[in-house]
């Protein structure tokens, strides 16, 4: 106790002796007990715990490679059951990729508008609105899509799309595939709206992080706003924009509730975008009651969850690597 000095080495506290002793005592106790302890590293432990518990619960070697098929027949689970992830993985990748593409186009446009074109007040207002959009629960999008959009999609939009774009892959297909409106197209539509806030926010920050000097140099050479965007801002913000793409994809592939409500719950090779499909996330959400009843199914579904976890970790690592530059400078501003 008699030793004056900082609780941690290397901190310059030259005038420490002027402090009253009780403070210093409390100082040491508090930091040693609270912040030196493992609680401080909990995010890391939590991540490891999630992965560890799921690995423990999955009992991987029971199924092995049969998981990677499209054969899906387990009711009831028994010796002849097959558990192929194929159609679910297809649905996940298809919906997430399409949503990501649409969201990229729209949010790039919105981000450029906000950063470059709009005057201050509309720009701020739209920033607030897009951020608010991020907070709206996915289940609310789900019920809106199911009750309001699905009938419209099934009766009006999808038949006319099919008539007009039948020559485009995915937009033709048999008429019965349209059904009640739920299906891949509806899921993609709602997923797009759901991931737009996050992709817009990242792209906005990337565009803002382009050095002002480069932008001014472009303007001083007689470039218009759009020419500066296209030739200076977009090339320099490229990494951040691709990062946003990845993070949007990660968000879309992990979404379970809204997709489950809208995609039509059919594990199949979809004949068109109007047809029903299924995604990994939606499936493991829907089947959790069966998982509760059948331990074997639980193991399978936990494996599905592990695959989702793996995808999300990879996608997020890439996404954050790419957006790091713009995030840091965004923080500095």
């Amino acid at each position: 106790m008699s030793e004056p000095g900082p609780p941690e080495g290397g901190v310059p506290t030259g005038a420490a002796p002027t402090l009253p002793p009780p403070e210093r005592l409390r100082d040491r106790i508090t930091w040693k007990m609270v912040l030196g302890s493992p609680v401080a590293l909990l995010p890391m432990f939590l991540l490891a715990a999630v992965a560890g518990v799921l690995l423990y619960a999955s009992d991987l070697h029971n199924f092995g490679w049969s998981l990677w098929g499209t054969d899906w027949n387990w009711i009831p689970p028994g010796p002849g059951s097959s558990y192929g992830i194929g159609y679910f993985a297809l649905g996940s990748v298809l919906t997430a990729s399409l949503a990501m593409l649409l969201a990229t186009v729209l949010s790039l446009a919105m981000a450029i508008s906000i950063v470059v074109y709009l005057p201050v007040i509309p720009s701020r207002a739209l920033t607030v609105v897009t951020d608010l959009l991020a907070g709206i629960p996915s289940v609310v999008f789900g019920i809106w899509g199911f009750v309001v959009l699905a009938p419209y999609f099934g009766e009006n939009l999808e038949p006319s799309l099919r008539d007009a774009l039948y020559w485009l892959p995915g937009f033709g297909g048999p008429a019965f595939a349209i059904g009640g409106g739920t299906g891949i197209l509806l899921a993609v539509f709602v997923l797009t709206i759901m991931i737009i806030p996050i992709t817009t926010a990242i792209m906005r920050e990337s565009l803002r992080a382009v050095p002002h000097s480069a932008i001014e140099a472009g303007l001083a050479l007689g470039a218009t706003r759009w020419e500066v965007v296209r030739k200076v801002r977009l090339p320099m913000a490229r990494a951040g924009i691709f990062g946003a793409l990845f993070l949007g994809f990660g968000r879309a592939i992990g979404e379970s509730v809204a997709v489950s409500m809208l995609i039509g719950a059919t594990p199949q090779l979809p004949p068109s975008l109007y047809a029903g499909g299924y995604t990994i996330a939606a499936y493991i959400l829907d089947q959790q009651d069966s998982a509760f009843a059948y331990p074997v199914l639980l193991q399978v579904l936990v494996e599905f969850a592990l695959i989702l976890l793996l995808i999300s970790v990879v996608v997020n690592i890439v996404g954050h690597r790419l957006t790091r530059g713009s995030r840091n400078s965004g923080t500095l501003n």
């Binding site: 991540l47 518990v53 799921l54 992990g254 493991i284 959790q288 969850a305 592990l306 970790v313 690592i317």
Partner: peptide
Amino acid sequence: VAGYLLAGVPAIVLGYFGFYL
């Protein structure tokens, strides 16, 4: 990095973690 990754873990995966544990 762990914080970012944890934020990116799909909610359904966390759900299965809680469900099992």
